[in-house]
């Protein structure tokens, strides 16, 4: 296979981007249909609970995180393996990623509560948490987001901001840790880029990529659990169902972070590993 000329390269990149775009739109639509109906049902049942609706659906959470992780990994592979270091798109994304991934995950939760929810109209009257003891009034007031898509978009936006940069960063670090001599040796033996990637780079970096993804999801789950916990302790008189969710989120966050630590310990960065 010869080296593609710039035109071919551009065409290939456009096709890849288009495919990614189309797939995202499709998945987005499926998700929207599935979850918006759920949100509606929940809203009808307990209109006073925008927070639990936002943070509370584990299925929604898992699928959106999974998508976020996939998007992050794909993006990192493209940046690291295909784009040259001087490419302006790469510079731009890497800059944003290093900013976003450095922000503590708690701040994203606060961002939702203090900015997204009040200004999106999800809480029309209360501008934040519904006041304790005022639940009945609140439930009447907040009924306006019944069937609203705002919560869905807020949730997606938050998870994209929280999970994707962390995944990109972890994946890039894992890819960079694959020793250059290994790549060079494989290339020197006549392997092409795809063979080097699938036979050496991916197997060597995979545990670290998975660990990074788990850590990112764990962060997001933990923040959700935190907000559900606050909600239970301060803002509802019937914590029953929410306690279960709280436990589920906290448990999942703990499990993921333990799994991630286990992976990082069992498989150190490829460059420091005696393979």
């Amino acid at each position: 296979m010869s080296r593609p000329n710039p035109k071919q390269k551009f065409a290939l990149q456009s096709i890849a981007l288009l495919t990614l775009g189309v797939v995202s739109v499709l998945v987005w639509n499926v998700l929207k249909k599935t979850y918006l109906s759920d949100v509606q049902v929940l809203s009808v049942a307990r209109v006073s609970d925008p927070l639990p609706n936002l943070f509370g659906d584990i299925y929604f959470f898992l699928s959106i995180s999974f998508l976020g992780v996939l998007l992050g990994i794909t993006c990192a592979f493209y940046l690291e393996e295909w784009l040259p270091e001087t490419n302006w798109v790469r510079c731009l994304i890497e800059g944003q990623v290093s900013i976003l991934s450095g922000v503590p995950s708690l701040l994203y939760g606060l961002l939702v509560v203090t900015v997204f929810l009040p200004y999106s109209g999800a809480f029309q009257r209360t501008q934040g948490f519904p006041p304790a003891g005022d639940l009945n009034t609140a439930s009447l007031q907040v009924s306006s987001f019944q069937g609203d898509t705002t919560l869905f978009y807020i949730a997606v936006l938050t998870f994209v901001l929280l999970v994707v940069p962390r995944v990109i960063k972890a994946t890039q670090e894992a890819l960079r840790s694959v020793p250059i001599p290994i790549r060079e040796s494989a290339y020197a033996l006549g392997a092409n880029r795809w063979q080097v990637l699938t036979k050496h780079v991916v197997p060597l970096s995979l545990p670290r990529v998975v660990a990074g993804a788990c850590r990112a999801m764990s962060c997001a789950l933990a923040v959700s659990a935190l907000f559900i916990g606050i909600y239970i302790s301060g803002y509802t008189i019937q914590p029953g169902q929410m306690s279960g969710r709280f436990a589920l989120f906290l448990g999942a966050a703990l499990l993921l972070s333990i799994f991630s630590s286990f992976l990082s310990q069992r498989y150190p960065l490829a460059s420091t590993r005696h393979i």
Binding site: P181, I182, E184, A188, L189, G190, N192, H200, I275
Partner: peptide, 18 residues
């Protein structure tokens, strides 16, 4: 890739592919 197959290369420090 064909060019590289015509050339065998041994580096100073052994690089065992994993």
């Amino acid at each position: 890739y064909g060019l590289r197959r015509k050339i065998g290369m041994v580096l100073p420090l052994p690089v065992g592919l994993p």
